[in-house]
Amino acid sequence: MVSDTAPNPDIRISIRNLNKFYGEFLALDRLSLDIDKGEKIVVLGPSGSGKSTFIRCFNRIEPHDSGTLMIDGQVIDDRTDLATLRGRVGMVFQNYNLFPHLTVLDNCTLAPRLVRGTPREQAEEEARRYLAQVGIGEQAGKYPIQLSGGQQQRVAIARALSMNPEIILFDEPTAALDPEAISGVVAIMEDLAAQQITTICVTHEMGFARRIADRIVFMDKGSILEVAPPQEFFTAPRTERARAFLDQMIQF
């Protein structure tokens, strides 16, 4: 586990005593965690445990209220340039949230062109490379509605990749996918890890979590209760709450 004293600047991502309130409600309660470069973290926990809120702190879609969040030794707070931060920390959503009025290619080039000012030709060339990397290079000219769920999720990953991020946040990326499509996402995430891209993933899919995670983070009621490798977490959870959670998931 991590020490509760000070953030460790040598670690890729270092979190200490992170708090987040919604009005009076404490959504995140003194979270502390260190994540290494290229690590695959899976955040598990029941609904409402604060998983999504937690990972949205990394790109400040949900700004934290107190505590410290450091990425590569740099403190992330309200003085951080959001465009730069979000260029470094990409995000993939459960419902993909592709831009339906743009082609697959334009989905991937919009942000680089607008945020980074990348010339269209260069942006398209890079986007085609990422689309090929996630296995849908031939779909570049289609609109999202013409694609299957699995294909759309790959576009969403390619769109995140097109900003060339160091970290990608996955918010339940497999919730709407069939088993075959899930396997595809697993392969892509392993590929990302091989490229030293850190992935932090919220999911309800135990099988998926077990296959990809380097470490499991278990959360409940806004707190981190356990951090362990999947083998250890799934066979011998240390907390009663995690055991109850796993029992329910297996029954289901």
Binding site: N59, I61, L82, A83, T84, L85, R86, G87, G90, M91, F93, N95, N97, L98, F99, L110, A111, L114, V115, R159, M163
Partner: peptide, 11 residues
């Protein structure tokens, strides 16, 4: 979700 996705891209 469109706004969130665009926001997350730094727009």
């Amino acid at each position: 979700g469109q706004l969130v996705a665009a926001d997350a891209l730094g727009m």
